[in-house]
Design a protein around this nucleic acid. Structure first.
Lengths: 206, 206
DNA sequence: CCGCCATTGACCAAATGGGTCAACACCCCT
DNA sequence: AGGGGTGTTGACCCATTTGGTCAATGGCGG
């Protein structure tokens, strides 16, 4: 790809990336037209192919970018705060996630879709152990939390899994475009987390 | 549409419907080609347009069909068993849902997608109160259950919502094509439900 | 052997696809 | 003012795909 893309104002880069992710999130790689991406970004198709030699190259770049963003912001930053309470840390993580949704409206749906992409033009470069990454991140997360606060018989791994699944479900059932929608999402998440906290923590830690 | 479609063997109808739902579930209405549907069903495009005058008509028919199936099987049948225990009834409902996934692999993703369809050719006929239907179904469900088994302070509506969200998340993150995948899905659901049951029910009802 | 009907696949005009390219508009530097 | 670099455009190309049609076929019941 043309490295000059990176010397564009950040805003403009974001605009193009977002538009592309939004479009790729809506249809298959093959069915997503460069024209639609350009139109959505309010940019000419020529410009797109000026920075990315291919539709494929654009897609691959986006994929890399999306993964980096996810790993860097959503997963790692959580720990930096040094919070050791399971639910507080998870909540902060989820807050970061919501910020991501705000900033890159198409990101999660796009990442989700790369999961199912079967296009032979992409497959060699895609197909990696995202599940494994997720799994080990969760393990790592758990190892830093105060798990003793949970009642006996509670499997914290399962709790986190349940909450992540629910978050995914919420993300799937909304477009989450406006700020209020995102806030509503976060509010609902918090309600669920609070409920779990209330009944899964030992009473002395409430 | 051509009513003779219904005199086709049930198997053949299902094949065509499934193929169409699978395809419509993958791309936008506009981007889904009749050709692809026909090919997936192993049928000529001519036949498709023999039974459905339009791509639009096919889509609208599918939409109606999918909704009927959902309402009839997934929502209503749950109550017929007369089960009044919250988790048992929910589990039965979820089992029915998994059967649906088995029988119509593309159904849920298709229904999900109709949610976002903005195509002007469809919009007049779509745009539903599926949320309302869902909401009232849940209320109705709750009114039949033994809610006294819950500990004080538990909001059963929220519990059901959490479980449904998680189920949706699970459905979103897998293709759920093979039988094992579906069983795994069900197993994970059950683990979550059991955990909730264990900690949200009063002890005398465990 | 006939007639019926589900089914085909070649066919069409129109639209859309990815990708190119010469030209433009703007800005900085003399 | 003029020149050169750069970000950007939109018209253009042609191969493919599109929704939809239709005459022809094939098989089955009578």
């Amino acid at each position: 790809m043309n490295e000059k893309f990176f010397s564009l104002p950040e805003k403009r880069q974001d605009l193009i990336r977002s538009s592309a992710m939004l479009e790729f999130g809506e249809n298959t790689f093959k069915k997503t037209s460069a024209d639609a991406i350009a139109k959505r970004a309010g940019v000419s198709k020529g410009l797109l192919f000026h920075y990315f030699k291919d539709k494929r190259e654009l897609y691959l770049y986006l994929y890399q970018y999306a993964l980096d963003v996810c790993v860097k912001h959503y997963m790692l930053r959580t720990y930096d705060f040094g919070e050791t309470d399971f639910f507080l840390a998870l909540e902060m993580g989820h807050k970061v996630k919501m910020d991501l949704v705000r900033r890159y409206p198409g990101l999660f749906r796009f990442v989700m879709r790369t999961y199912y992409e079967r296009d032979s033009v992409l497959s060699p470069k895609l197909r990696r152990g995202l599940d494994d990454l997720m799994e080990s991140t969760i393990r790592d997360f758990l190892s830093r939390m105060d798990l003793y606060k949970f009642k006996d018989g509670v499997d914290p791994y399962q709790v986190i899994r349940l909450l992540l699944l629910a978050a995914e479900g919420m993300l799937a059932e909304t477009n989450a475009s406006t700020a209020e929608e995102i806030n509503a999402l976060f509010a609902e998440y918090k309600r669920h987390a609070d409920m779990l906290r209330q009944f899964l923590y030992k009473e002395e830690y409430l």
